[in-house]
Amino acid sequence: MKTIKVMLNVNNEKVTLQVKPYETLLETLRERLSLTGAKESCSLGSCGACTVLVNGTPMRSCLILTPEVEGASITTIEGLKNGEKLHPLQQAFMEKGAVQCGFCTSGMILTAKALLDRNKKPEKRDIVKTMSSNICRCTGYKKIIEAVEETSKK
């Protein structure tokens, strides 16, 4: 099978790749680009652990074929820091104790980032609703919601 040439802007870096037509974006990020921050948990779109931002929109990268997003800007958890400075959401997740095993964390943070990017001051209800896109097995969500709330107030 022929490969397909795909250009992406991943975390502000242009990359050109030859990908399989049946390769998911999650595979491309993890296997080709070694960006393993996005996790594979259910692989069927149910859990959100593989969430990345595609042109700013949170998406389950396990459900996307890489050729579909030709030319897109992709932000993964590895691209959130600004130099040494953490993104406020990353800082808040740490300070509020919203991280336990960490496997859902990158998807959670990116989902929250997209929310705050489109709505700077969401109501708590919106936060809860939006964060209900992702499954966490450890925290009971309370500190995750608090971390997002706290960031939105800054």
Partner: peptide
Amino acid sequence: MILPKFDYK
């Protein structure tokens, strides 16, 4: 879980 082979157009 990987996808089976197919072509993309």
